[in-house]
């Protein structure tokens, strides 16, 4: 288990991470979300002991990373898929990492097969696409068969097939009992992958909740209605639900309305409905609303 306690990392006056606390539990995929510049990467680098925290700590099974005897067997990390030497082959890159922990050569073949790079094993990395580098980075993270995984924006550069592959892989790794932390700035992507969400903005914790609870809390429920006679529906809603939002095709989105009551109301007024359904705000909208105040760099409309 990974535990981050009151973590603060300051660069001069600017606080990249500001009093952040959360846990990454075993057996589930935790999505680590925030707009670009929110402090996700800094947090991950601190967990790995690459950046020294200004205050607070990050612990792995109760120990700071530097005190782990064989760190790669505890934590596997992919921080930046581009941080590899292009002159090495995929195998060469994995060989030095394996050598640092005396891992068997067989393990290199295993992880290359797992990420689908067996055929590219002896190609130089400089010929790899970003997607292939992401796969290689994931192979490197899995080399020590670690109990916890930290992946920073792993879907960047992956095509649709690659994204589906990584989703399945993360699910499987979590089901094997590992703690999986995946950072992303894409809420929709995380909604489909993560069991739990940690949302930060400007280095501060905004939410630490299950994906389902996040959706219930932040994804506003709306009832969508459409009638045979749109004019009758308009008249009815103007009277009973002034907050209803017209959809342009005669239908309406009625926020926070119970579909049963709305249906009964329409029936009592003899308004024949052709559609009555419940929709939620997408996670992306909830995320945007939540982080709107914390987005660091915003285009200004003049």
């Amino acid at each position: 288990m990974i535990e981050i306690r009151d973590l603060t990392k300051a660069y001069g006056e600017r606080r990249a991470v500001d009093g952040l606390s959360f846990r990454v539990a075993a057996g589930r995929v935790t999505g680590f979300l925030g707009p670009n510049g929110a402090g996700k990467s800094t947090t991950l680098r601190t967990v790995l002991g690459l950046d020294r925290p200004t205050a607070g700590e990050a612990l792995i099974d109760g120990l700071p990373y530097q005190r782990l005897t064989e760190p790669l067997r505890r934590v596997g990390a992919l921080l930046n898929a581009q941080a590899v030497h292009g002159g090495r082959t995929a195998t060469g890159h994995l060989r030095w990492i394996a050598a640092s922990h005396h891992l068997p050569a067989r393990r290199i073949d295993e992880v290359l097969a797992l990420v689908g790079l067996t055929d590219a094993a002896h190609r130089r990395i400089r010929t790899f696409s970003l997607g292939m580098r992401q796969r290689l980075g994931i192979a490197a993270a899995l080399l020590g068969d670690p109990a916890a995984l930290l992946l920073d924006e792993p879907v960047n550069g992956l095509d649709a097939e690659g994204i589906r592959w990584i989703r399945t892989l993360l699910r499987r790794l979590a089901d094997e009992g590992r703690a999986v932390l995946v950072s992303s700035h894409l809420m929709a992507e995380m909604a489909q992958t993560a069991d739990h969400l940690v949302v930060i903005g400007r280095g501060r914790l905004l939410a630490d909740t299950s994906t389902a609870a996040f959706l219930t809390e932040h994804g506003r429920r709306r009832t969508r209605v459409r009638a045979v006679d749109p004019a009758a529906l308009t008249a009815l809603l103007a009277e009973t639900h002034p907050a209803a939002v017209p959809l342009g095709d005669g239908g309406y989105d009625v926020p926070d309305a119970d579909p049963g009551e709305l249906g009964a109301l329409a029936a009592s007024r003899r308004v024949a409905l052709v559609e009555l359904s419940v929709t939620h705000d997408s996670l992306e909208e909830a995320f945007m609303r939540m982080t709107a105040d914390t987005v660091e760099y915003r285009a200004v409309t003049a």
């Binding site: 790995l48 690459l50 921080l79 640092s100």
Partner: peptide, 9 residues
Amino acid sequence: AGSLAAVPD
């Protein structure tokens, strides 16, 4: 970064 993740000391 990868080197120091492998050998943190």
